[in-house]
């Protein structure tokens, strides 16, 4: 659907892909809610987004593509389920090699270390969230959207052999539930 990857936004003839580009577009259109926040808070939001986009995404890619059990039982079927017979067996392996190359040194880590890195990163965000309604300030920001997107996916995807839910802090789960109620009116219960 999108050549540069997900997420993407289509408004009329305008097509924007990648999270940062969408946020930049919304900032230009003055749709961002925390415009009144101080410079420091804005910097923190950018840094936290980077943590999620780089570190957590790396862990997720590792879990879905490089763990054999998950790859054969879940990822391969989801990724190539709609393709023809021969392609069904070729394309997932091609993509897997591509991801291994992209991850570089990270691909050589063992599962235990990757899970500990994932837990540490999520704990960092949970530490900043604490018991507040949103991660930063009283209004939802892009970091809330990003946390919701990642944590919701981790909560609702059943990975064979790995219990990811135990590595997600409780307050992040509650934030996820709140965001689901607020934006989707609980259509997809966590």
């Amino acid at each position: 659907m999108s050549p540069d990857g997900i997420p993407f936004l289509k408004i009329g003839n305008t097509f924007i892909s990648q999270f940062i580009n969408i946020v930049d577009f919304l900032t230009i259109k003055e749709c961002i809610l925390y415009d009144t926040a101080s410079d420091e808070v804005k910097c923190d939001v950018i840094a936290l987004c980077s943590l999620l986009l780089n570190e957590v995404t790396k862990c997720e890619l590792y879990l879905t593509w490089l763990v054999d059990d998950v790859f054969y039982k879940v990822t391969r079927r989801r990724y190539a389920g709609h393709l023809f017979f021969v392609l069904k067996h070729l394309i997932p392996y091609q993509r897997r090699n591509q991801i291994r190359k992209e991850l570089g040194d990270f691909a050589s880590y063992d599962l235990k270390k990757v899970l500990s890195i994932l837990e540490l990163n999520l704990t960092c965000i949970a530490e900043i969230l604490q018991e507040n309604t949103f991660v930063i300030g009283n209004d939802p920001t892009e970091i809330d959207a990003l946390v919701f997107g990642h944590v919701y996916a981790l909560l609702t995807t059943d990975l064979p052999g790995i219990n990811v839910v135990q590595y997600i802090p409780e307050n992040l789960k509650r934030l996820c539930k709140r965001m689901d109620d607020m934006c989707f009116k609980g259509q997809h219960p966590v």
Binding site: D44, S50, N54, C124, E127
Partner: peptide, 19 residues
């Protein structure tokens, strides 16, 4: 435990690595 300063430090380090 992980402190909020350390959490911010991790976030900025990730940004530093990226940019």
């Amino acid at each position: 435990a992980v402190t909020s300063n350390w959490a911010q430090c991790m976030a900025y380090y990730s940004l530093l690595k990226e940019r």
